[in-house]
Design a protein around this nucleic acid. Sequence first.
DNA 1: TTGTACGCGTTATCAC
DNA 2: GTGATAACGCGTACAA
Lengths: 331, 331
Amino acid sequence: MASLQEVARRAKVSIATVSRVLNHSDKVVPDTRAAVEQALRELDYRPSRVARRLRMNSGHAHLVGLIIPDIQNPFYAEIARGVEDAAYAAKYALLLCNSDESPEKERFYLDVMRDESVDGIVLPPFDETDVAVIEFLKTGIPVVCVDRSLSKAKTDLVEVDNYRGALDAMAHLIAKGHKHIGLIEGRAQVSTSRERRRGYLDALAENGLAVRKDLMRAGDFKQESGRVLANELLDLRKPPTALFVCNNLMTVGALSAIHQRGRRVPQDVAVVGFDDLPWAEVLDPPPTVVRQPAYDVGRQAMELLLKRIIEPARPPVTVRLLPELVVRRST
Amino acid sequence: MASLQEVARRAKVSIATVSRVLNHSDKVVPDTRAAVEQALRELDYRPSRVARRLRMNSGHAHLVGLIIPDIQNPFYAEIARGVEDAAYAAKYALLLCNSDESPEKERFYLDVMRDESVDGIVLPPFDETDVAVIEFLKTGIPVVCVDRSLSKAKTDLVEVDNYRGALDAMAHLIAKGHKHIGLIEGRAQVSTSRERRRGYLDALAENGLAVRKDLMRAGDFKQESGRVLANELLDLRKPPTALFVCNNLMTVGALSAIHQRGRRVPQDVAVVGFDDLPWAEVLDPPPTVVRQPAYDVGRQAMELLLKRIIEPARPPVTVRLLPELVVRRST
DNA sequence: TTGTACGCGTTATCAC
DNA sequence: GTGATAACGCGTACAA
């Protein structure tokens, strides 16, 4: 744990000189430079990121935060991976936190980010009006939203065309002849939910299909709610012949509910999910899904963040990526 | 971003007094305390974790590191979740990094941990002789190993009884009448691989079954290697009738290879995996696995770490958790 | 080209 | 009880 002081002493120079050979490699004569470098090596010197961060105003921490709702959700894990890869490529470290879809945890970690003086953060806001995030913007620390957007603030944003994805999913189901399609959506206040629901409704309307309110259920993005809501739907007097399930975990829940009832997919009920599932090929059945390019979402978000750290005043940009319908055997 | 200075000025006291009302709530008369607290509120003061960390020697960062090989692997995601929950409960933030089973990335993040002066780290070492981790121990920053152990250093450790797990898996297969059991293991230098292989061999020996070297293959813990090695084994002149696959991702790879060849599980080949798989009930077939209590591994590791942070000199302890054979329909 | 000295925001040790 | 003040390790004007 050698400090600049000790290195300077050993090299018989001042700390300023040591600092100079470390940073702006300018103006230092080869001789002293060599001496300093040797001392550096001998003491195995490593600069303290903490002291550096305290000294520099901001944008030099080489540390960014990522707050995701659930690290065990493969969709977010993939985003995290994209962010991580881009961060690592730029030699940035990542303060990764798990908000558990809980505003309190989100707020706690947002505070940590601020108190740690990170260079920026990326996160999917809890919902469209996430006050904790809005509040955080005041710190001036750059924020890039991913997946979900904020309604009353403009930040950099990387999202997927959820409306288009829902349209594709519904078109596919309708082409298969389904007229009664159940919707299992997520929390209504989340931008992705709103867009997917809009796609569901528009697809119905454009194809002259009636909207049945009893076929529309809202869950919480978790597996259990997919199970429960699928059961509710299938218990209906006039059950749907197909399900459009708006995220990966709820799709698994729905699938397992259908299995448990001894019904067959897709013969008895067809299912289209949102988000691809890992190991889709060994699922029973391999599910048809709207695949989101989650890795790219993360990667591009991090790249946007790096640009903004360098140039804080640049106008916010929105990157909208295209989802892709992957037809497998659940439809 | 108000500092102690500004709060002090506003409350017309010294920074020492402000610091006192914040920390040791001792010795400060109600009047001044009230004034300070009001200033604190008005300025929305938040202490800088960075400055605090620079000042305090160690053990007060309220920040710990977690380095895992692959955040997209559900086993590690579950460990991470356990660590995270225990950390959050103690109001610690987590610097979570993804080493990608790469020694260089591991070293980079280890350096970050050191340079950030974290209070401690938890990680599964790359292998038994992981030099980067051994080196890191010299910093004096507490290290808790999870899942995998170090052969030439004693640290706190939370592991699973891998030998017992392998024994159970093999006993199950042997009871089903299998005599030619293929082994797909991970990198040999990893403690978990060694133990599982030992279980495999001992089970064979104890049941008077011959060891066939051609039935033993080593992969890299990733899905692709499971696929490739399963194919190699099934291509054998005398292929195994059952597979013992030593981690989750390789199990998925093996399963998909078998599917692709049009063979049935378990009729043509039985499969036991190590590590449970999420959504096992919707897999085809639901796999029989040796389930590791990954969440508890993470939780207990973090609890061990917290204890060590408080009491750095306590003797290292090893916690060994029991795995559980979950019999489903792949055997 | 190199060295001195200050400040970043804390905590802690002294005096008063 | 409270207030100066000295660190912690670093970057950088400014002086030499």
